[in-house]
């Protein structure tokens, strides 16, 4: 056992290059025991590549990974005994039933039969899946598939859990089940690394690592990250979003404008002052628009805000 102050996972200078791209470059971070550490970033940021290297299924080109005292780069097989990895793409056997999948992974981790049966029940119950034990995994809903993946990765009680976008495309009920399990795991001291595309999930993490184009840009608690973002985010719906975008761009006090689905998101320096100002200006310019609503930034907004800031400086 390691000393309590020593990080559970230590990553330094982690780099992975593919032909034509550098997927991850010089990532350095520590994760303490019992953390739920979130990996966030746009598509292609390098999240999956980081996960794979930590899981010992991909060899880094440079850098080091230590889990407790195990050097994952040099001895991945030793590390694999105590970790579970849930890939982004569903990795279980669709032509095997729920029970058969669980049994298979329990056997690969040499979980004694009695122990396996003791654990299977509560895990299935916690994820509301008892009724589907004999169903083929391929016939489960997306949410249930992911929960089955989690059950299989928990059957051997790992110390480290690596989850690559486990809740993408999962219904809200299953997501709630999922997170309930993660919290209880955290309480029992499991260290969790999770990548996610959802803001609410990112905010549940103890700390977040923001990746962009292979680089780790920010690493802090969600609260402090949000505080990093200057200004206030306004959401404005419009039937002429492009005109709206043009009209707002470069105006006094408008720090950034981003087109979203049904309008724009704009960051302003002082909302109290700018909201009446802008709405008057838009009315004058006869640009159709809805109310200017203050919203909490999403992870994407945070990104745009933070990354824009970084480019400016």
């Amino acid at each position: 056992m390691s000393a309590p102050d020593k990080p559970k996972i230590r990553v330094a200078g982690l780099t992975k290059r593919f032909v034509g791209t550098t997927a991850v470059e010089g990532a350095t971070f520590d994760i303490a025991r019992g953390e739920i550490f979130g990996l966030v970033g746009p598509d292609g940021a390098g999240k999956t590549t980081v996960m794979r290297m930590l899981a010992g299924v991909m060899r880094p080109d440079a850098g080091s990974i230590e889990i407790d005292d195990v050097d994952v780069v040099a001895d991945p097989e030793q590390a694999k005994l105590h970790l579970s990895y849930m890939p982004q793409r569903f990795g279980l056997y669709e032509d095997l039933t729920v029970d058969e999948n669980i049994r298979f992974y329990a056997d690969l981790f040499e979980v004694p039969r009695k122990l396996r049966d003791e654990r299977t029940g509560p895990l299935l119950a916690a994820s509301n899946m008892e009724a589907f034990r004999r169903r083929l995994a391929g016939q489960l809903s997306g949410g249930m598939k992911q929960k089955l993946g989690l059950i299989c990765s928990l059957i051997h009680t790992p110390q480290v859990l690596l989850l690559d976008e486990p809740t993408t495309g999962v219904d809200p009920v299953s997501r709630r089940d999922f997170w309930r399990i993660l919290y209880s795991l955290r309480e029992s001291g499991v260290t969790i690394l999770i990548s996610t595309a959802y803001l609410d999930e990112a905010e549940r993490c103890t700390r977040l690592a923001l990746f962009h184009e292979g680089r780790l840009r920010y690493c802090d608690t969600p609260k402090r990250l949000k505080a990093l973002m200057p200004g206030t985010l306004l959401a404005i719906t419009s039937t002429a979003a492009r005109d709206l975008h043009k009209a707002l761009l470069g105006r006094d006090g408008v720090m950034s404008v981003m087109l979203v689905g049904d309008g724009v998101h704009a960051v302003v320096d002082d909302a109290d002052r700018r909201v009446p100002e802008l709405s008057a200006a838009l009315d004058a310019g006869k640009i159709p628009h809805g109310e200017l609503v203050r919203v909490t930034p999403s992870i994407e907004d945070l990104f745009v805000g933070l990354l824009k800031d970084e480019h400016a400086s």
């Binding site: 794979r52 899981a55 010992g56 299924v57 097989e77 694999k80 005994l81 970790l83 579970s84 990895y85 849930m86 890939p87 793409r89 569903f90 990795g91 279980l92 056997y93 669709e94 992974y105 690969l108 981790f109 040499e110």
Partner: peptide, 14 residues
């Protein structure tokens, strides 16, 4: 092809 390899190689199986 079915994407099960990634999970398989992450287990201790030799």
């Amino acid at each position: 092809e079915r994407g099960t390899m990634e999970l398989l190689v992450s287990t201790p199986v030799t």
